[in-house]
């Protein structure tokens, strides 16, 4: 029983990371119909910038705020210089290559400057694990799934109740019509990328007290988050959170009852099968084009 609870808790933590990153991909997709493959590296950047600033003596709150702000600026720059110029036609895919390349550059730069070994962010919530049903979990880890769900509801409120949120929805629905209504769709995309990067960085910061912040922590995690977003149907915030949490839990049960080696092979196989069964994603909706 204890091990089942353990896998469930570990899975929810991991799933919380996937869900938060997939939410960022959802935000960017809605605003620009492009996915940012640097997102995993932004998650890493958030963690290591916070660690470095804290090591330099800045108070934790200041380090975290600065890290999120830096990530948001980086996200905006990526949209402006590495996505927008390569996303001019409806079926442009140049942004794929540019964002993958920028992600590799960020990881290399982090390895050169930060070092290859992990360091943790201090947090009183990660000092000792708490015991639950024969299993152990750091209170810090529980913040991840909670943050994913909270972010999902927060985005709903943001999209419905704020002027900027409604502008983003308008751009998502019809970029040209939104433009005709006076909405600057380029600015909306820029802000969406900054917002997503901020959430990505915050995800890295939330896990950094438990898992050491490493330059290599983002690439595979970001790729899995992308898989989660696609399987869920990237246009559904609720879907990416549900699938994200489920994917994390599934990985931990595969590790527990099969093997670590089977985790990624089986996980990605299930992603492919899910896409075969639900081409628009499990929670996705087909795009309707009026002709």
């Amino acid at each position: 029983m204890g091990e089942i609870v353990q896998y469930l808790l570990n899975g929810l933590t991991l799933g919380g990371i996937y869900a938060l990153l997939a939410l960022g991909l959802y935000i960017m997709w809605e605003a620009s119909k492009a996915a940012n493959f640097t997102h995993g590296d932004i998650y890493m950047l958030g963690a290591i910038v916070a660690v470095v600033l804290t090591e330099r003596g800045l108070p934790l709150f200041v380090s975290v705020t600065a890290s999120v702000a830096i990530a948001a600026v980086v996200g905006a720059l990526i949209e402006r210089f590495f996505v927008r110029p390569f996303n001019t036609e409806p079926h442009s895919i140049g942004w794929m290559l540019t964002t993958i390349a920028v992600g590799m550059m960020i990881e290399s730069a982090a390895t050169q400057t930060y070092g290859s070994l992990g360091r943790q962010l201090p947090s009183i919530l990660a000092e000792k694990p708490i015991r639950l049903g024969g299993a152990g979990v750091y209170a810090q880890e529980l913040l991840l799934p909670i943050a994913a769900v909270a972010t999902m509801f927060g985005l709903q409120v943001f999209y419905r109740r704020t002027r900027l949120g409604r502008a983003m929805r308008a751009v998502a629905a019809d970029r040209m019509a939104a433009g005709l209504m006076g909405i600057d769709s380029n600015l909306v995309a820029l802000i969406a990328f900054a917002l997503a990067a901020g959430i990505g960085a915050l995800t890295g910061i939330l896990i950094a007290p438990v898992l050491p912040a490493l330059p290599t922590m983002g690439a595979l995690t970001g790729l899995k988050a992308f898989g989660v977003a696609i399987v869920a149907g990237i246009s559904s915030a609720r879907g990416v959170v549900i699938v994200g949490l489920a994917y994390g839990v599934m990985e931990k049960f595969i590790e527990g009852y099969l093997s670590t080696g089977a985790r990624d092979a089986l996980g990605f196989s299930l992603v492919i099968l899910a896409l075969l069964a639900f081409p628009q994603g499990i929670f996705g909706r087909g795009e309707v084009k009026k002709v």
Partner: peptide, 13 residues
């Protein structure tokens, strides 16, 4: 028990 490089949770093993 084995694990992959970059694995950050080895609880199952």
């Amino acid at each position: 028990e084995t694990f992959n490089l970059k694995d950050q949770d080895l609880s199952a093993q």
